[in-house]
Simulated scan of single mutants.
Amino acid sequence: MKHQPAVLIVEDEPAIAELIAVNLRHNGFRPTWAMDSDSAQRELDAVLPDLILLDWMLPGESGLTLAKRWRADARTKAVPIIMLTARGDEADRVAGLDAGADDYLVKPFSTKEMLARIRAVLRRRAPEQTGGAVTLGGLTLDTATHRVTFQEQPLKLGPTEFKLLQYLMSHAERVHSRGQLLDKVWGDHVFIEERTVDVHVKRLREALGDASVMVETVRGAGYRFTVQPVAAAVSLTGRD
């Protein structure tokens, strides 16, 4: 029997939640509904869904607060989150993505768009769930434990910086334009400006500390992960 992905809908408006649930059911998903932060937490405590559709404006704690909390929790940090909101400003979209959301749906949205984004997020997340670690130049990123270390020292990265580093390390030595990174890390349905990539690269470098030299800016082209600068730095410091 084909797996039916479970989707937790966190939405305080019953009419919207019911419409989403009906469309999900008709397209091979198993929806459950929570109308506020408390009931959403109870649903998550009971069983982890394959994906969460999370409304920004909720009674009690906001969707933004919930997303941050779930991303900080080891049990729920790998569950994909798509934010639902009437907020369409770029600053709000960036805030939602910074909180750990994988994608963003601005109301009103079509069923076709919703289903496309859900499937895209589940596809992007699938490789992560298989686990595995990548080690380059003394920097190790482990998707199973969501940990990053440099020369065996732990580093603290936000969820977006983790995904950005994971993509760069998985495609080391290749140059990626800002548009490509938006597509691969944030998803091709996220409409945010390319300069947002620069902000997250800056944060990533700050988090990497001494390992930051491996994230190179290629002028006029984009960014590249390379171990060459680290090797060169080590050889220079080793000379008399």
Rank of each mutant, 00 (worst) to 15 (best):
A126R: 14
N27H: 15
R124A: 15
R75N: 06
P49R: 01
G137W: 00
L51W: 04
L51C: 10
L51D: 02
A86V: 13
D50L: 04
A116D: 15
P127C: 09
A91M: 09
A21C: 02
L115Q: 11
E113N: 13
N23K: 12
P127S: 07
A91H: 11
D103V: 05
D92S: 15
G60L: 00
L105K: 13
G100A: 09
W70G: 03
Q41M: 11
D55A: 05
P14K: 04
S39R: 07
R124V: 11
D50G: 05
G60F: 03
K68T: 06
D38A: 13
G131R: 08
Q41G: 03
E90N: 08
P108C: 10
E13C: 12
P49L: 02
P59V: 00
L48I: 03
M57F: 06
E128V: 13
S37N: 03
R124D: 15
L24H: 04
V94L: 13
R75M: 07
I20A: 03
R75K: 11
R75E: 07
L84R: 05
R117K: 14
L48H: 01
G63M: 00
A72Y: 04
A40K: 02
Q129T: 14
R123P: 11
R42Y: 03
D73F: 04
A40W: 08
G132E: 06
L105Y: 14
R117Q: 11
E90C: 04
A95E: 14
L54T: 01
I118H: 13
D36S: 09
R123E: 15
V10E: 05
L19D: 10
A72N: 07
R42G: 00
R123T: 14
